[in-house]
């Protein structure tokens, strides 16, 4: 019963994507438009390039930069955000600057980092980590500020104060809000990863795709776009899974409420 019902749910969820891909496949089969090659041809080229011939050259460095930059952003965003969340006086002075910096479109900061660092990997990592820090920092600050006063009182009476209170009470209580910042940060990190490769020549999946476009290697460009799309989607899926595990307590609590 439940098995067949679940199967039905999957079928209802899946028919449209399958249909769309099928339509693309058949509609493009006879295509002579150079910009829209047949999907079957794109697919063959995709397998040649990305399973897994070019992966070590282009995909691995991209993901590496993304991972390192994002990790720095998480540490900096949560760390600074937590301090600002606790100390309102500092926050009053720092917030306007943060507000300004995060209002600059993330991708537009890449040229700034190119001016400072040149075109190498350190530029990419710096751009990724700075851009991704803001949403994490702001979410952490707001979350830490909004801790339920009853929890804080309870902690204080049990002599859980200062750094311990921040680490053991305020930050865990703020997890749901922090995670929304982490998600936004990850999406921005992904975008800046690609932007930094578009703008700084060389390796990486973004650079590969843009160079292919400029050289009218249209098939290669298509495979790059599809690969980036799939990567972007996959990264979100992974994040959702991690979030669901980390916030099990919160999700369970909300379901019962």
């Amino acid at each position: 019963m439940t098995v067949s019902r679940r199967l039905l749910a999957v079928l209802i969820g899946a028919w449209l994507p399958v249909l769309l891909v099928y339509l693309w496949w058949t509609a493009s089969a006879e295509s002579t438009n150079p910009y829209f090659p047949p999907l079957s041809v794109i697919w063959t080229r995709f397998l040649e390039l990305w399973v897994f011939d070019q992966v070590p050259v282009h995909v691995v460095p991209s993901l590496q930069n993304l991972a390192v930059g994002y990790a720095i952003a998480v540490v900096a965003g949560v760390g600074v955000g937590a301090v600002l969340g606790v100390s309102r006086r500092t926050a009053r002075y720092v917030e306007p600057v943060v507000d300004f910096l995060r209002s600059i479109p993330a991708v537009a900061t890449v040229p700034v980092f190119i001016v400072i660092f040149g075109l190498d990997a350190s530029m990419r990592i710096a751009a990724i980590s700075v851009a991704a820090t803001w949403p994490i920092l702001i979410a952490t600050m707001q979350g830490v500020r909004a801790t339920d006063p009853t929890l804080l009182d309870t902690a204080a009476v049990f002599r859980i104060t200062g750094a311990q209170q921040l680490w053991r009470v305020r930050l865990p209580a703020a997890q749901p809000i922090i995670f929304s910042g982490l998600q936004l940060g990850l999406q921005i990190a992904f975008v800046v990863t690609i932007a930094s490769e578009y703008l700084g020549a060389g390796f990486g999946i973004g650079a590969f795709t843009l160079i292919a476009t400029d050289s009218f290697l249209i098939l290669d460009a298509w495979t790059g776009v599809i690969l980036m799309g799939l990567l972007g989607y996959a990264i979100n899926i992974v994040f959702d899974i991690v979030e669901r595990i980390a916030l099990r307590w919160y999700i369970g609590q909300k379901k019962l409420a």
Binding site: G13, L20, Y35, A221, G224, V225, M228, G232
Partner: peptide
Amino acid sequence: FTSTKFVFDFFKVIPPIVIIPITILA
């Protein structure tokens, strides 16, 4: 709603920067 959910969720999380090479071509 359930039929379109996957397709929309898929495209929702794909940032437009990804498709720029194709749009430049087209």
